[in-house]
Design a protein around this nucleic acid. Structure first.
Lengths: 217, 217
DNA sequence: TTTTTTACATTCAAAAGTGTATGGATAACG
DNA sequence: CGTTATCCATACACTTTTGAATGTAAAAAA
């Protein structure tokens, strides 16, 4: 346990190695997640974060410029789930089955979301922070929505061309309906993730919805 | 202009009539809505609210116990939209057309939401406040979701009994899908209400979705 | 090895916000 | 018409939080 000893009755924490310093940075971000979820972003002070991590504000101000900088670092530890969702859509074997591609992309997104760190950070973004500093969670949500909707539109258009979409359903409307469903599921599950698995329930709902949208052969 | 004059170089505001006092209370609540939407609930001080209303904190502390009390009063100026939605479902002429009842209930909810005060307060609840005092917006959202879902389930069950629901779709799943859609639409529109009308777009999407769910005769 | 930089803890000053106490003119009431 | 309670502004004490300054022992560099 290097660098830990007493000096004049006061506990002195000496310099850490680079690896140790990086670890304390992660510890601080973990502690910030905890406090943000429990008390909200605005109502947790940097001192609360430092204490919960077993340190003082000195550590926080060394690793981060201020609270907004720490918040930004916390966000950058996770990638947005819908990017993964879009990634999974790039499967060449699904070119002839666009609705199946949408289904698998949703499943991929759900499974990413169930990882604790992803879930916690997105819960903070959606439910535990107001507009804060240079970070506007609403515009971030809007970006996610637009990305999702445009990707969905692309695949629903393919489905329409392949005559796999019900004739009464145009691709735009299909994409909007699906995007609203995904957003609703997302918000709902983040509010009470301990009650059910978004992977299981989401898969079931998305599956039946896609079946409703599909042109019966 | 009663009760307004100068005294020793300092502007003195004398006692108002009861009607005037009630008006300043409303003015304070309006100002609070403005500031909450612009800066978030946690990051607006009572002084900012008072200044934006053209008064001082004295007025705020006279009409409200503290910030949480003011927030609660702001919420009580609007009723929750899904209560109206449930209200509209109580139409006896629709007993034989439960899916149509659901559609009309959604329309009723949408039209209520487009009233500025409803929209603003719900926008604050969903997007501009963290858990605050004795008010937990997440549990309020959960209550709204559960109420909506149980009402939807009731009517989708009726539809199933009347053989108006597609056979591949059980009432529970139908209610969950519809509730996710409504929640997604709700969040989406509150994020950028200036871009479209939830009444028009919502009506269109809900209509096609219900058509997808309906058993073709 | 010597010097410099790092990785924090501690301390301090300043600002902001809250709650309360006080004052004061007048509307409301008897 | 006199009294009282009201409606709000002002002033004060207190707490909380922030950002910066300082100290320091060891890691890292020279």
């Amino acid at each position: 346990m290097p660098g830990l000893f007493y000096c004049l009755g006061c506990l002195i924490m000496a310099r850490k190695t680079k690896a140790e310093a990086a670890a304390t940075r992660e510890t601080l971000l973990d502690a910030a997640e905890d406090m943000f979820i429990e008390h909200g972003v605005a109502r947790t002070s940097l001192n609360q974060i430092a204490c919960h991590a077993g340190m003082t504000r000195g550590a926080v101000y060394w690793h981060f410029k201020n609270k907004a900088d720490l918040f930004h670092a916390m966000l950058q530890r996770v990638r947005l789930p819908f990017e993964d969702l879009l990634e999974a859509l790039d499967d060449p074997t699904l070119d002839q089955k666009p609705l199946e591609a949408v289904r698998l992309a949703c499943l991929s997104g759900f499974s990413h979301l169930e990882q604790p760190r992803y879930r916690r950070v997105h819960s903070i973004l959606l439910h535990h922070c107001e507009t804060f500093g240079d970070i506007d969670p609403l515009s971030m949500q809007n970006e996610m929505s637009e990305d999702t909707c445009s990707a969905l539109l692309k695949y629903f258009s393919m489905a329409a061309k392949l005559n796999q979409l019900r004739s009464c359903l145009d691709p735009d409307t299909a994409a909007q309906i699906m995007q609203a469903m995904l957003g609703g599921l997302f918000h709902d599950w983040l509010r009470n993730h301990e009650h059910y698995s978004i992977y299981r329930e989401g898969a079931r709902l998305i599956g039946t919805q896609l079946a409703l949208m599909q042109q019966s052969p």
